[in-house]
């Protein structure tokens, strides 16, 4: 130790700074862009010295986009609301279905159990485009296209496998004896599940919930095909900024900042759970 620890520490600091810059710079740049007009954004060379303006945010919140071509109505706030509805309800439904299912997969060995679990996971591997076209046709004929119900249903493909696999790992980590002890105390199977298993897996459930929420929030392609302007989340809504008269970089940046904020706050708040959940549950599963 001793002599070499000095330059080792400096080297570590330098490397960490480089990595941090690499990952954080785009976010930082977008943040700056959201306070600029298109003109300042597009000037060459770019500069971080500019006169900040709130006009992008005003446009988004008021829903009126003033451009060279005139006034354009945009439904950003509506899109934000849609994102919230879709993500929250999808995750809630996935928890309701996924937590008991994860428990079943963790505790009971049944025929085809592993195959079913793996099939569910494989939904995460398959390219969405593979299923989208037939799905769109089916949804059309079933009248599910452009409904919250239909979208939330499809979102289960994203959120359910995630919750299932992370939470399953957590349930497997709980000693069977703890559940047995509670049964012998005189409690039913269901009560044991609710009072022992679920509370003990809570960090895993929280982590899975967060991840599922982020994935649902960020989804683009399902909503692009299966929803119209009325039901669009922000990810799809942002397309509206690509107008005939040009791309509204300032508004895009502002909308990114606004739409990232909820997930960012959530993730920061629950960072501890998130890391723990990823490293424990996910690896084990």
């Amino acid at each position: 130790m001793g002599s070499d620890s000095g330059w080792k520490r400096v080297l570590r600091g330098v490397l960490l700074t480089i990595v941090a810059l690499f990952f954080l710079f785009p976010i930082f740049w977008v943040f700056l862009m959201s306070f600029q007009t298109n003109e300042t954004i597009l000037r060459i060379p770019p500069s971080i010295v500019f006169e900040p303006t709130l006009q992008n945010y005003v446009a988004l919140i008021s829903g009126k986009l003033v451009s060279n071509a005139g006034v354009l109505e945009i439904a950003f706030m509506k899109n934000l609301g849609n994102s919230l509805i879709l993500s929250v309800v999808s995750v809630a439904l996935s928890l309701l279905l996924g937590v008991p299912a994860a428990y079943a997969f963790a505790r009971f060995k049944f025929r085809l159990g592993e195959d079913i679990a793996f099939t569910l996971l494989s939904f995460r591997f398959a390219p969405p485009l593979l299923v989208l076209l037939p799905l769109a046709l089916y949804f059309q004929s079933m009248g599910l296209i452009d409904t919250y119900f239909g979208l939330i249903w499809v979102y289960q493909l994203i959120t359910l496998p995630l919750i299932l696999w992370i939470v399953r790992g957590y349930f497997e980590d709980i000693s069977e004896d703890i559940e047995y002890a509670y049964r012998v105390d005189g409690n039913s199977w269901l009560r044991t599940f609710l009072k022992i298993s679920v509370p003990l897996a809570r960090p895993g459930i929280a982590a899975a919930m967060l991840l599922a929420f982020i994935f649902a929030w960020n989804n683009f392609v399902f909503a692009l095909i299966l929803a119209s302007a009325d039901k669009q989340p922000v990810t799809v809504g942002a397309l509206a900024f690509v107008t005939a008269s040009g791309i509204q970089y300032g508004q895009i940046a502002a909308s990114i900042v606004l739409s990232v904020t909820p997930t960012l706050l959530l993730a920061l708040y629950a960072q501890r759970y998130l890391v723990e959940g990823l490293s424990l549950g996910a690896v084990k599963g």
Binding site: D177, I178, Y180, A181, R183, V184, D185, N187, S188
Partner: peptide
């Protein structure tokens, strides 16, 4: 019969205390 209906007491090798 289900374990909760047998009315017996059991202590486990790894103690199996409820951590919460």
């Amino acid at each position: 019969e289900a374990p909760e209906r047998r009315g017996l007491g059991m202590a486990f090798q790894n103690f199996a205390l409820y951590p919460h």
